Amino acid sequence: MFDHVKFGVSNYAASKAFYLKALAPLGVTAGGEGDPSYGIEICGRNNASLCLFQARGTPAPMHIAFVAATRQEVDAFYNAALAAGGKDHGAPGLRPKYHAHYYAAFVLDPDGHNIEAVCHTPTP
């Protein structure tokens, strides 16, 4: 549905470092970048991108979920996000209240946004 999503962050350098490290296990890489007021495009495997820029005010909290191809990618995302300074908001595991194969992990980014990696594939 989305081509890209752009949102402001309170500390551009910290958020850029967090997202590049936390999302690396999901195959995400840095794309084009301008000055902090323009920001950076962080590109996914499916050509969708997340764009960050230095906000002037306090960003409103939001929830972003990223597709993981495997449950191992969810685990790797969670560990990378914590190592990058994210705060635990839900360890990797099944979330059967969403559906039987919903395997996800949640962390809070430097601005308190709820960042998720989710795999919908059943285990073999």
Rank of each mutant, 00 (worst) to 15 (best):
Y19I: 06
G112A: 11
G39H: 03
E33Y: 05
A117P: 08
Q72P: 03
R95G: 03
L50P: 01
F66R: 00
Y38R: 13
Y78N: 01
A13P: 00
A68E: 03
A80S: 14
D88W: 04
F7M: 07
S49F: 12
Y38V: 15
F106E: 01
P36Q: 13
A81T: 11
L26K: 08
G85Q: 09
P25L: 11
P59R: 08
A13G: 00
P61D: 08
A24N: 12
T58K: 07
T123K: 11
C119G: 04
L94M: 10
A60R: 14
A91I: 06
A22E: 11
V107W: 06
G8P: 10
L108A: 11
V67T: 15
M62G: 15
A55I: 03
S10N: 10
K6V: 15
L52H: 01
N79V: 13
K87R: 15
R71T: 10
A76D: 15
G27P: 05
Y78H: 13
P92T: 02
G39A: 09
V28R: 03
E73I: 12
C51W: 05
S10Q: 11
A30Y: 08
F7A: 00
I64R: 00
D3K: 14
K87C: 05
L26A: 06
V107G: 02
A104N: 06
E33C: 02
Q54T: 01
H101I: 06
K87F: 02
P110Y: 04
A17Q: 15
V9R: 07
L26N: 05
S49R: 11
S37T: 11
N47V: 11
L26H: 03
N46L: 10
K16D: 01
G44M: 15
R45C: 06
A84E: 11
A13T: 12
G39R: 04
D111W: 02
A22N: 12
H120M: 11
Q54V: 01
L26E: 09
D111N: 14
F66I: 13
P110W: 07
F2K: 04
D111P: 09
R56M: 09
G31H: 02
A91E: 09
G39V: 08
L52K: 06
V107P: 05
A14S: 12
A100L: 10
C51Q: 03
H113K: 06
Y102I: 10
A80D: 08
G112R: 10
F53K: 05
S49G: 09
N11E: 10
Y38A: 15
A105D: 03
L82Y: 07
L82D: 11
L20D: 05
P36H: 10
I115R: 00
S10C: 05
Y12Q: 03
S49Y: 12
Q72M: 12
K16M: 02
D111R: 10
P96I: 12
A55P: 01
D75V: 15
